[in-house]
Amino acid sequence: MPRGHHDLGGTPAGPIDRTEHQLDDWEILADAVNQALGAKGIRRTDELRRAREQMDSDLYRRLSYYERWIASLETILIEKKLLTKEEVDRKVAELAAKWGEP
């Protein structure tokens, strides 16, 4: 079985970037929505991990940390039939219109 894209221990890697960034509001929100769903027993940590470990490998490497959280959260919520991708797409378009962006 090939090594999963998440299984990084011991793989070749360069220097560690020690720059820290102040979280943006969307990152704080991603964290809080995730934790709130966990607190209510709607999703489990292992489920989100599975979603991140099974996502497209290029995407896993390309996305930032909280982008990966959001992608895996959407996957799990769709699996649980709590929402659909189309609902999220529609809501994204609605918000863009409300925010006055192209």
């Binding site: 969307w26 990152e27 991603a30 709130a36 709590l82 994204v92 918000l95």
Partner: peptide
């Protein structure tokens, strides 16, 4: 980013469906 937008959308849908409340999200923050 596209993913950042989706978390606002997911949040709004979860609120509309009554799966989460704003208070529950705030409590986690």
């Amino acid at each position: 980013s596209a993913y950042a937008r989706r978390v606002y959308a997911i949040r709004d849908i979860l609120l509309e469906k009554g799966i989460l409340t704003g208070e529950e999200i705030q409590a986690q923050i």
